[in-house]
């Protein structure tokens, strides 16, 4: 089955294989660089996310690709669509801001006091397709704070991220895709 490919591999020699591996590694490295660079520019730990649930329908559907920014000196406002991740939850959530309380912070004993830092905010979010706000999703927190927010949605591409969802649902697909790409890089001649 792979006799032909093996033969070409043997003909091309060891140095060629090394070169192809190097090429593959540089592709991976540049991908990582772009991702981390985007993260630096947008000040967000994950500047591109894929919508995983239907809680923001009809604005976003499963598989939509979202582009986020998180400017350090900009406050969030009601109506903004934010992506947040609370400690204890494994996936980030894309929901709209329902309440903002600027200049408030949570003191010890869960009491809410005015903060001297004007960047401090307490936020409450809600999914457009949900009936009630997100307090149940906050894993014991009562308000979101600035540090829980990954970013604000600035743009989106419909359905493009569906591949990632498929890869999440069927992990075999991920390995098949990676393996296939690696094999292609190895045996491609140019």
């Amino acid at each position: 089955m792979f006799a032909d490919e093996l033969k070409t591999l043997r003909r091309l020699g060891f140095r060629h294989i090394l070169l192809q591996i190097l090429n593959f590694a540089s592709v991976l490295a540049s991908g990582l660089t772009i991702w981390k660079g985007l993260g630096l520019i947008t000040n967000s730990e994950s500047p591109i996310v894929v919508v995983l649930s239907g809680s923001m329908e009809p604005a976003f559907y499963r598989g939509d690709l979202l582009f986020l920014t998180n400017p350090a000196n900009e406050k969030y406002h009601t109506g903004d669509i934010t992506v947040y991740k609370v400690p204890g939850a494994d996936i980030p959530i894309v929901h709209r801001v329902l309440e903002t309380h600027d200049g408030a912070k949570i003191a010890r004993g869960r009491s809410i006091v005015a903060s001297s830092n004007s960047q401090d905010q307490l936020l409450l979010t809600k999914g457009d397709n949900n009936y009630i706000d997100d307090i149940e999703l906050y894993q014991g927190l009562e308000w979101l704070q600035r540090r829980h927010i990954i970013g604000k949605v600035r743009g989106f591409l419909p359905y493009v991220g569906y591949v990632t969802i498929a890869m999440n649902d069927f992990p075999q697909l991920k390995y098949a895709l990676l393996g296939g790409l690696g094999l292609l890089a190895l045996i491609q001649r140019e």
Binding site: P58, T78, G79, V97
Partner: peptide
Amino acid sequence: TKQLFLYVSAEYTNPQGIRNDVVIWDKI
């Protein structure tokens, strides 16, 4: 234009100086 998100918000500053903005109603 895919959709409009229309909402009513109440804004006020309480005596401690906390600026609040609360959405009380919305419509898509």
